[in-house]
Design a protein around this nucleic acid. Sequence first.
DNA 1: GATAAAATACCAACATATTGGGATTGTCCG
DNA 2: CGGACAATCCCAATATGTTGGTATTTTATC
Lengths: 188, 188
Amino acid sequence: MQTGTSVIIHPSPIIQQGIKSILLSRNISITEILNEIPEFVVVSQWKDMLILADKRFGDELTKHARILKKNGNTVIGIFTGEIIHAKDTIFDDMICIDDNMDHLLSKINGYLFRVTGTKSDSQLSVRETEILKMVAQGFSNKQIAVQLFLSIHTVITHRKNITSKLGIKSIPGLTLYAALNNLVDFQR
Amino acid sequence: MQTGTSVIIHPSPIIQQGIKSILLSRNISITEILNEIPEFVVVSQWKDMLILADKRFGDELTKHARILKKNGNTVIGIFTGEIIHAKDTIFDDMICIDDNMDHLLSKINGYLFRVTGTKSDSQLSVRETEILKMVAQGFSNKQIAVQLFLSIHTVITHRKNITSKLGIKSIPGLTLYAALNNLVDFQR
DNA sequence: GATAAAATACCAACATATTGGGATTGTCCG
DNA sequence: CGGACAATCCCAATATGTTGGTATTTTATC
């Protein structure tokens, strides 16, 4: 399920939460959310991570450049406000607050491509995802079968595979998983 | 349970998600998330709302100043970057990206103070809320009964009342309702 | 062409949820 | 006092989900 892990370093709680939510929607887990650059001991433990840090920490981060590179991390700088692209060699890439979703996701996918070698996809098949979506929308197995022109047995089989793949047994659990992964509309 | 409703108007998905998450943590539901100021018809329907809008929409918002005031809305401007506090009369208050959580919450609490006197609280009783929470966490009626030292019949009765009060019949629907209303932990 | 995975379908037994009743006890408030 | 409501409990019938099997066909990949 997990395709990558990340660390967010930014003093603003709005940015922290905003980035967190976008990463989770792409199935990237968040290891730490920090307000500042931590000590070397902590930094040196990050491996193959996506590190999103406030651009203003550029200098401080540069001190850890060697270990970050060595451990295969991807470091992305976050701009707020003025778009002055100073050449910080520490950042592999940059995102700006005003970037639209497509732009943000393309940067994130760049990271995923580096870590996984493939596009970020869940372990669920297309059909399974389709059925999970409908489960989270409250449809019964019978209703799903009718709507997808399947036998109810097939739906049940798919659901068995979904629960065993995800390790989530309850319907509420599947629902929250679907909501977290943007399979169902969560707004209102 | 609901203490307030809000609208977020900002082009940046990071800001959108960040503010959303902070509002939900304060039990304020989000009616709409918009990239731009919508048409008058839409704006005129907002009542007793917390409206968080990009400061750059100040001028456009001013056009709707009369109806917004009349309907008892609270309008908060969002600064990104440069802290140039131009005097936009439309904004009742301002928040800045770099504000810490305490600062943000104090602004939000200001709004809550204004509305909670007029708003009616949740239609669910304490016991019903407690049970809804457990349903959304995936507990069966039997498990809930054991944990709360109740008969399973009582749990079923409560659930009947919950579904009839909320008008939500499916477990996934109840789960999403609970997640939206911060009864269950939604992030990870 | 063999192998793996996905998608499809079925059965039986058991577990849980839903629905539509009915009923008692307390508390708060007009 | 009486009404409204919250909280508790019970039953029976039906619907739906879960579990643990087996099995065929198609599609993709090496």
